[in-house]
Simulated scan of single mutants.
Amino acid sequence: MAPSDNEAPPCTLQAIDAPARTRPSHYPEPFASMMNGRIKRPLGDLFGLGHFGVNLTQLPPGCVSALHHVHSRQEEFIYVLEGRPTLLLGEQIIELQPGSVAGFAAGGQAHHLHNRTEQMCVILEVGCRTPGDTVAYPSDDIQAVAGADGKWQFTHRDGSRY
């Protein structure tokens, strides 16, 4: 939720107090349900940041951060604040802990996080908003293209719309 034109962005705030995104996922069904329980707080939007996004993401036990994916143009970075999420990076399985960081270059390996523990995981996510991005999901019949308006448009691999 970005500030309106009449509303000044906050100077500072406690990240955990930022409003959660109202939609749990941008994915169409049946994929959106796979993100049930995930809470994203879009911090960068609160300050009117347009070139990169910053999210405080909470993953309860059993929850995944996203589908296994790779961006064509956008880059991502994560910093684990709490918990011990599992990073699935290509075919690798990497156990993370508080203080762990990871970066994902455009066109690199597909990745996502999975909370396989009984404790909450809290991750700071940072990503650029490079126009013209596409996203491949090698484990699922879905692909995404960022529209001119910046919103994701999802199709099956054969190009038919969801």
Score class of each variant (00 low, 15 high):
Tyr137Asp: 02
Pro131Ala: 03
Gly147Ser: 06
Asn115Ile: 04
Tyr162Pro: 09
His69Trp: 09
Ser4Cys: 03
Glu125Cys: 09
Arg23Ala: 15
Gly99Thr: 08
Phe31Pro: 06
Val80Arg: 04
Glu76Asn: 05
Gln153Gly: 06
Ser33His: 00
His26Met: 11
Pro61Thr: 09
Pro19Met: 06
Gly159Lys: 13
Thr117Asp: 13
Leu59Glu: 05
Leu88His: 15
Cys63Arg: 10
Ala18Cys: 15
Thr117Ser: 15
Tyr27Arg: 01
Ser160Glu: 11
Val80His: 04
Asp158Ala: 10
Ala2Glu: 07
Ala105Thr: 11
Thr12Ala: 14
Val135Phe: 01
Gly99Tyr: 06
Leu113Ile: 10
Gly132Arg: 02
Thr155Cys: 11
Arg116Lys: 12
Val101Thr: 14
Gly103Leu: 01
Arg41Val: 11
Phe77Pro: 01
Leu49Asn: 07
Pro30Asn: 10
Arg129His: 12
Pro138Leu: 06
Asp133Gln: 05
Ala106Gln: 07
Pro3His: 01
Ser139Gln: 13
Phe77Glu: 04
Pro42Arg: 03
Ile142Tyr: 05
Ser4Gln: 06
His71Ala: 08
Glu7Asn: 04
Gly150Met: 02
Leu49Glu: 03
Cys128Ser: 15
Pro60Tyr: 06
Asp133Gly: 03
Gln97Cys: 12
Thr86Leu: 15
Val145Ala: 11
Pro3Ile: 02
Phe77Leu: 15
Ala15Gly: 04
Asp149Tyr: 03
His112Gln: 14
Phe47Ala: 01
Pro98Ile: 05
Ala8Cys: 10
Leu113Asp: 05
His51Cys: 11
Leu89Ile: 03
Ala106Leu: 05
Thr155Ile: 10
Asp140Arg: 06
Ala2Trp: 00
Val54Met: 15
Tyr162Ser: 10
Gly99Asn: 03
Gly147Asn: 08
Arg84Glu: 15
Glu118Met: 11
Met35Glu: 11
Asn55Phe: 13
Ile78Asp: 04
Ala18Ile: 10
Ser25Ala: 15
Leu56Lys: 07
Val54Arg: 02
Glu118Phe: 06
His68Trp: 04
Pro85Val: 00
Phe52Trp: 10
Pro98Trp: 06
Pro9Trp: 01
Asp158His: 07
Thr22Gly: 07
Ser160Pro: 09
Leu81Pro: 00
His111Arg: 07
Leu124Arg: 10
Trp152Cys: 12
Pro131Phe: 00
Asp140Ile: 00
Val54Asp: 01
Gly37Glu: 04
Ser139Gly: 13
Lys151Gly: 08
Lys40Trp: 00
His51Trp: 05
Val64Trp: 07
Glu95Tyr: 06
Arg129Asn: 13
Ile16Thr: 14
Gly107Leu: 04
